[in-house]
Amino acid sequence: MKNVTIICLLLAGVALVAGSATAGDHGGDIHFTRPVEAVLFSHDIHVDQLGFDCDSCHDGLFEYEAGAAEQNGDFTMESLYGGGYCGACHDGETAFASDTRCATCHEGVKGYNRALGKTETAASHH
C-alpha cells in the first residue's frame, strides 16, 4: 500500500516535471513530496537567474532523475543541517540557512495543489 502511494507520488512528480521542463533546457520545477508535502525546487531561479551549472548540484548532491533523492532515507532536514543535499549551499554562508525562511522552499500542500492545478481553498462551503 505504502509503495503504491510512493509510486503514485513519484509519477505525479515526473508528470509535473515533464510538464514544466519545456520552459528551458533544465529540469523546470521539482516538487518534492517526501518526507513532507511539499518543497519546490526551481531550476529557473537556480540556473537561469543565479547562474549555477548542472554540475553544481548534479555532481554528487542530486541525481539527474527527478524524485531520486526522495527515495533515500536520509532526505531530511537533519541531513540538510549537516551539509547534505540543499544544505550544501543553504548553510547560512553561501545561501540562507536551511533552518530559516521555511516557507521560501516549502510550498506546502497548497502550493503543490496549485501546481497540480487543483483549486482548493480554505473557504469551504459548509
Binding site: E37, C102, H106, G108, G111, S124, H125
Partner: peptide, 25 residues
C-alpha cells in the same frame, strides 16, 4: 508561525482523530 510549512499533517491528524468530515475542518 514562521516554522509552519503547510505540510498539513496537523489537519490530517485532527480529521482522523476527531472524525472531521472532508467538507469541514
Amino acid at each position: 508561525v514562521d516554522r509552519c510549512i503547510d505540510c498539513e499533517r496537523c489537519k490530517k491528524a485532527c480529521a482522523k482523530t476527531n472524525h472531521v468530515p472532508d467538507y469541514g475542518y
